[in-house]
Design a protein around this nucleic acid. Sequence first.
DNA 1: CTGAAAGCGCTAACAA
DNA 2: TTGTTAGCGCTTTCAG
Lengths: 325, 325
Amino acid sequence: MSDVAHRSGVHQATVSRVLNRPEVVKTETLRRVHKAIEELEYAPHTGARHLAGGRTGVIAAFVPDLANPFFAALLKAIQAAAHNMGSRVMVADTQFDAATEIEIVKKFAASVDAAVLCSPVASTAGLLAAAGSTQLVFVNRAAVRVPSVVVDQAEIVNLAVDHHRQLGHRHIAVVTGPSSYWSSAQRLRAAQRLGAVHVIDNADPTFEGGAKVLGSLLDADITAVVAFNDLMALGILRAAVDHGLSVPDDLSVVGSDNIEMAAMSSPALTTVAAPIDELGQTAVSLINWQTSAKKSRSRVSLPTRLIDRNSTAPRTQRPAQQTRG
Amino acid sequence: MSDVAHRSGVHQATVSRVLNRPEVVKTETLRRVHKAIEELEYAPHTGARHLAGGRTGVIAAFVPDLANPFFAALLKAIQAAAHNMGSRVMVADTQFDAATEIEIVKKFAASVDAAVLCSPVASTAGLLAAAGSTQLVFVNRAAVRVPSVVVDQAEIVNLAVDHHRQLGHRHIAVVTGPSSYWSSAQRLRAAQRLGAVHVIDNADPTFEGGAKVLGSLLDADITAVVAFNDLMALGILRAAVDHGLSVPDDLSVVGSDNIEMAAMSSPALTTVAAPIDELGQTAVSLINWQTSAKKSRSRVSLPTRLIDRNSTAPRTQRPAQQTRG
DNA sequence: CTGAAAGCGCTAACAA
DNA sequence: TTGTTAGCGCTTTCAG
């Protein structure tokens, strides 16, 4: 940095200002310094900057499972958004475990500017305590004291159930994930508010979990099901086919998330798409980059849309109103 | 740190030694210092440590595409291995692009202890130059000047082609990915060495790419194909089904990577499994943690195995020797 | 608007 | 085996 200072004929402190608060530097000086920076290919030392109290230029992204395609896509979006803001991102896997979440937040908090927690399960108080003065942002879980982006879970349930009803289905089930998830609770409430739908809660939100749910579906004479996510939907779909059922004729399945795999299965999976890229971008934008800036809206709910890849009326009954063949 | 020093009645420098070179400190002192560390819940400041020339405790992991399930799984493995070594990991997406790779390596190099590059496409020289004094490790690409872990590509081709031949297939195609990939070149050579197999090179290694390949397959009267990876295999499989073919009766498909999705498709996909966790672990273990340590073996090749989920002989011909129904 | 000077918390010679 | 002493490269008051 002092090299740059010499070359542009200013004091080292001025170079620092050019980098951190360009608005207080005369335009002419700004130009000269920038020129020197370029000629010398100077790049600030992140460790020193951190030590002296500045930004680290790093944000943390914590996801329950990196191998889960939904979270992989989310991480990709977060990474891209952070890159645009000039930040690097550190990742860690929390394994859907509250204790691990706390431990990891503690471990990373001191060395990052902010942490984005995706679908956290630990208590807000515990997380906040572990974070100390490091900023937190939640994705897919609402909280009063932490800025958050969520996907409207009630809308997911409504869209999916409506879809089924319009096709003429009358025996519809909504399956939720583990009760520790915020989204499970939301879906449960939405389903109950809707009435006249069968609810299966606390299911394992995986491919295998989906397969395990089929029995209960059959027992309850269900003709249409709203799965907790695409992985589970695919599991249900596969188990149904293995069981000799025809999908969607005997059992209509709607997933959620619109992971790539949903379009690849056959039959392709109808799903309620979450705007994953937007989720990631919003999460990053919720970070208070200027320590003292007024908080931006700290609670964003993103809309979803249904992607219909595969629709039929229930077998024994013609639909009252059919949207498409 | 000086608090800890006071509390344990030693000099601050000794605390530093306890943390960095415990072997030169008297056991009794070690104990006292550790006790103080715990009581004070002291945690070293990573920025300061970095500034003073020590480890950063961070490694970088660069993958072509975070949303690709193979790389997501690989990243998960790398993250887990790094976590075990007490390191955190920074990620970035290189988008299979040489220029982006160089740019990202430049951006991260100064702030990490080492960088693990997965399936890099940029030149070794360029990468090395961008990395400066930062250590590099390659995954899925061999290089003379850079420690690397690879999956044995020739073995993949051999296993898959053998599998098809044993089932009685005689019109076998091997499809490779973009020619900029090290693995594509390896597979090409392996296929040529094998002889009597049809080669389709430089295909798009995605689901859509697989679909596009079907035409060439049909034109060449192929009954069995070895795809570049599972995504492509799934694409071929799907296109074949859409085209009215029966899989595997009309067209037998083998993929590679054994991503989760391979087991979920129907029919399930036979694939050559790469030991992803081991890949990640090995990559991390290849990092020279002690600056001056003698290099460990710097070129590791990992074996693969075929996972048979779905086999049949070609339609018009009974197999000479059939391994299973 | 810019220069001067004081650390941030740690590692690494060097001395004892 | 431990204490002493310099910085590492930057941000930030405080003057001017």
